[in-house]
Nucleic acid binder design. Structure first.
Length: 401
DNA sequence: TCTGGGGTCCTAGGACCC
DNA sequence: TCTGGGGTCCTAGGACCC
C-alpha cells in the first residue's frame, strides 16, 4: 500500500459539539457555561469545562462544580442536521472521508496538493468553511498517519489547527502519556503504569512480549506499533454500522416482569424502526442487563435468517429474558438494552445471490453483495464470490481484513 | 468516576465440520 | 480406536471509544 510521506491526513473534530450547536442557535447561551444533558452531562461548553465539569458526570455534581451553568435538554435532530452540514463540507474537500462519529472524521488529502494546495491550506479552508457555512468551530490535526493526526487535533483544541511535521514525529510522540494511545483505557493504563510504563516513549522502549503479556495479543501489538510510529491504517470510505441498538436506564427498585417487558418492547420497537428506516436486517440479537451492583451481563441469540421484524425480535427477547429472570429477581436490574448485529442490506437478502447484477462499477454494490453472501453463507463463501468475479471478468477487490 | 446512550473490537471456550 | 490439525460459528464477557 502506498503511504504518503507528507502530512496529508486530517483529523477534524468539532469542539464541544452539542453545546456549541446550542450556543449557535441561542445567542443568550454564548460565552456562558452550558451543559447539555438529562440525567448526566452529554456535552459541556468550554466555559463549563473550565470549572472541571466532564462527561458523563451526573448533573447534580456538575451543578455543584458550576453553579451558574445553564442546562439545556439535548436536541438530537439539531445535532444530526448540523453534523450532515459539516460532513457536506468534508465531502466537498475530498472524497476520501471516514466518519468516526457524529462530530469527527478523518480526511485523506494526499492527492490534492496540485488542485487545492498544501494540507495546511486545505485544513485552514476547511475550518473557515465550517465556520461560515455551519457556524461551528472545528479543530483540525494534520499528520502523516491517523494516530498522529488524532493526537494533533487533541492538542490543538479548542478551535485550533496543528500540523505535525514528518521530521519531528518522534519528538512529538515520545513524551505523550500512554493514555493517548488508541486502545489504552483505564484498565490497560493501570497495568502499564504498574510496569513503570508511563509515556509513549516508555512503550517504544518495551519489548513486544511484555506489552502483549500486559495488554493482550491484539492491544499489545497495536500499542507497540503506534509507539514506534507505525500506523499504516488508511482512511476508509463507506464503512457501515455493524449493529444497531438501544438501551434504557430504569433506576433502582423492584421492577415487575411486566414493567421490564414493556420497556423491552419499547426498545425493540425503536430498534426495529431504525433498522427498517436504514433498510437493513440483522441476525444476532443481544440483550444487555445491568444489575443493582453495576455488574453487567449479556445474552444473545442468532436467528437462522436475517430480519427486521419486530415480532421475531420480541419472541427471542422474551426467551432470553425468561432465562435471565431468576438472576434479575435476585440482583435487581437498572438497565436493559438490546442490539441487533450481523447486519446486512435488506435488498441484498431479498435478491438472494446478487451476482447477476451488473452494477459493480464503484464497488459499493459489490460490497453490499459480499455482505449479503457473507451473512447468509459465511466468510468462506467470499472465496467462491471471488471465483465468480474471475469467471465473469469482473474485478473483485480484496476484502479489508 | 458512582455511571447515559450509541457503538467497535478482542478473547476464549465449546460445538461442529472436514 | 482413544484422539491430529485447521477452520468457522456461536455465545459471553471485557475493554475501549465518543
Amino acid at each position: 500500500m502506498f503511504v504518503s510521506s507528507s502530512a496529508s491526513i486530517l483529523h477534524a473534530d468539532l469542539d464541544s459539539f452539542y453545546a456549541s450547536v446550542e450556543q449557535r442557535d441561542n445567542p443568550r447561551l454564548r460565552g456562558k457555561p452550558v451543559l447539555v444533558g438529562g440525567g448526566v452531562v452529554l456535552a459541556a461548553s468550554y466555559e463549563a469545562k473550565a470549572t472541571g465539569v466532564r462527561t458523563p458526570m451526573n448533573l447534580r455534581q456538575a451543578r455543584s462544580l458550576c453553579p451558574h451553568a445553564i442546562v439545556v435538554p439535548p436536541r438530537m435532530e439539531a445535532y444530526s442536521e448540523a453534523s450532515k452540514a459539516v460532513f457536506d463540507v468534508f465531502h466537498d474537500t475530498t472524497p476520501l472521508v471516514e466518519g468516526l462519529s457524529i462530530d469527527e472524521a478523518f480526511l485523506d488529502v494526499s492527492g490534492l496538493r496540485r488542485i487545492s494546495g498544501t494540507p495546511h491550506t486545505i485544513a485552514s479552508e476547511l475550518r473557515r468553511r465550517v465556520d461560515a457555512d455551519v457556524g461551528l468551530a472545528i479543530t483540525v490535526g494534520v499528520a502523516r498517519t491517523k494516530f498522529l493526526a488524532k493526537v494533533a487535533s487533541g492538542v490543538a483544541k479548542p478551535d485550533g489547527l496543528l500540523v505535525v511535521d514528518p521530521e519531528r514525529e518522534i519528538e512529538f510522540l515520545r513524551p505523550l502519556p500512554v493514555e493517548r494511545l488508541w486502545g489504552v483505557g483505564p484498565k490497560t493504563a493501570e497495568r502499564l503504569h504498574a510496569a513503570e510504563i508511563w509515556t509513549v516513549g516508555d512503550v517504544a522502549d518495551t519489548k513486544l512480549e511484555l506489552l502483549v503479556s500486559l495488554a493482550g495479543v491484539a492491544a499489545g501489538r497495536k500499542v507497540h506499533s503506534l509507539a514506534h510510529n507505525r500506523d499504516p491504517r488508511p482512511v476508509v470510505v463507506g464503512k457501515r454500522r455493524s449493529s444497531i441498538g438501544s438501551q434504557r436506564a430504569i433506576g433502582r427498585g423492584n421492577h415487575t416482569r411486566a414493567e421490564v417487558t414493556t420497556t423491552m418492547f419499547n426498545i425493540i420497537d425503536r430498534v426495529g424502526h431504525r433498522l427498517r428506516a436504514s433498510g437493513r436486517v440483522g441476525r444476532t440479537l443481544t440483550m444487555r442487563f445491568r444489575f443493582d451492583d453495576f455488574a453487567r451481563a449479556t445474552r444473545s441469540h442468532t436467528l437462522s435468517e436475517a430480519t427486521n421484524d419486530t415480532a421475531a425480535f420480541a419472541r427471542v427477547s422474551e426467551q432470553l429474558l425468561d432465562g435471565m429472570w431468576p438472576t434479575i429477581e435476585k440482583r435487581g436490574i437498572t438497565l436493559i438494552g438490546l442490539s441487533i448485529g450481523s447486519l446486512c442490506d435488506a435488498d441484498a437478502v431479498q435478491l438472494g445471490l446478487p451476482f447477476d447484477e451488473p452494477a459493480f462499477g464503484d464497488g459499493t454494490a459489490l460490497n453490499v453483495a459480499l455482505d449479503g453472501v457473507r451473512d447468509r453463507f459465511g466468510s468462506s463463501a467470499i472465496g467462491r464470490a471471488g471465483d465468480v468475479g474471475r469467471d465473469t471478468g469482473l474485478s473483485v477487490p480484496m476484502l479489508p481484513d
